[in-house]
């Protein structure tokens, strides 16, 4: 495009610019050769693992059978997508996916930032480190184990949650927490927070160390109390990090995870626990219908793409940090 436009302009001048531009480019390329060398593996990695698989999207338009070649398959057009959108449960699945995503996003951000701010205010290093370590720990438990811990604590025969609530006389008979659909989102949200809150604080704690201590001193001299300092110095200092993370998380909002829903889900809470991943597993992989699974994957990618770009656009409009 650019070269086209310049060709229409004054010819001799453009030629000169172009040759010097190219020369400049190669000069710079040579200068930064070590940087280029370092980044090449990653570009290749992205190409191989993120772009090459895209050609597999063809499967979504076929009635794919694994034992036949890619081009011997039967082409079925949009019928896989039609199956998705015409299925009664698909709408419910989408609703669950979005609800769980929003809960996870909001709860995740609020709790992580709060905990990070609180940790930052701690004076006793020993105590701070202990709290940090304890809050990181659940992150390293796999979901299989975590789900068992959760379902055991919520069990109606002797689960700790019911025991405590009974003891406090808040309820008079045990509640089957995982048996009531409406509770599922809440249980999932709390479980996710328990598991990941400590881990998520790391990036905020790191960002806080970047805030210039003189700002705090100045605020203190101006008479700002502790809460005022948090409100006026710490949080504004974190703002760029928060916005960038928010945009990035919006891009993967539909990845609500698979393990917790699968492991804690059952017939009684299926209306609320089934998300896109489980739907794909049931009707795609379990039935050997890889085409349907791929179609659902494409749908997810398109939605994520739209969300990511709109978030970035909004960030640009309000004049904040942005991804690109």
């Amino acid at each position: 495009m650019r070269s086209d436009a310049s060709v229409q302009g004054t010819v001799p001048h453009t030629a000169a610019v172009r040759s010097s531009g190219a020369r400049l480019f190669f000069k710079r390329l040579f200068k930064q050769k070590s940087l280029i060398c370092m980044s090449v593996p990653f570009v290749i990695w992205i190409f191989v693992f993120k772009y090459v698989p895209l050609w597999g999207w063809m499967i979504a338009f076929q009635h794919y059978r694994p034992n036949m070649g890619m081009f011997d398959q039967e082409w079925v057009g949009w019928s896989q997508f039609r199956f998705l959108f015409e299925d009664d449960s698909f709408l419910r699945v989408i609703r669950n996916t979005f609800a769980m995503a929003v809960i996870k996003l909001v709860l995740g951000f609020v709790t992580a930032i709060t905990l990070a701010v609180l940790l930052n205010e701690l004076r006793i290093a020993m105590f701070k480190r202990t709290v940090q370590t304890i809050s990181y720990l659940p992150h390293f438990i796999s979901w299989v184990v975590a789900a068992n811990i959760i379902s055991t604590s919520l069990s109606i025969d002797g689960g700790i949650v019911n025991q405590v609530l009974m003891w406090l006389h808040l309820i008079d008979k045990p509640i089957m927490w995982l048996g009531v659909g409406h509770y599922f989102w809440g249980i999932l949200g709390i479980s996710e927070v328990w598991k990941d809150v400590g881990w998520n604080t790391i990036v905020y704690l790191a960002a806080m160390t970047m805030i210039d201590p003189s700002q705090y001193e100045a605020a203190e001299i101006d008479g700002a109390g502790r809460f005022q300092r948090i409100l006026r110095v710490t949080l504004p200092g974190l703002r760029p990090v928060i916005v960038i993370l928010l945009i990035m998380n919006l891009g993967s909002i539909l990845e609500t995870g698979f393990e917790p829903q699968y492991l804690m889900g059952n017939g009684m809470n299926a209306d609320f626990s089934e998300n896109l991943e489980i739907f794909v597993l049931k009707y795609g992989i379990s039935m050997g219908n890889f085409s349907l699974a791929t179609a659902a994957g494409i749908f997810k990618t398109v939605i994520s793409f739209i969300l990511l770009f709109s978030a970035n656009h909004i960030a640009k409009r309000v004049g904040d940090e942005r991804l690109f």
Binding site: G179, G267, M268, A270, K282, Y283
Partner: peptide
């Protein structure tokens, strides 16, 4: 598909 769906419906309503 009937088998899968009927199983889902049953698992939802039987409890």
């Amino acid at each position: 598909i009937f088998q899968q769906k009927s199983k889902d419906v049953k698992l939802k309503y039987f409890p």
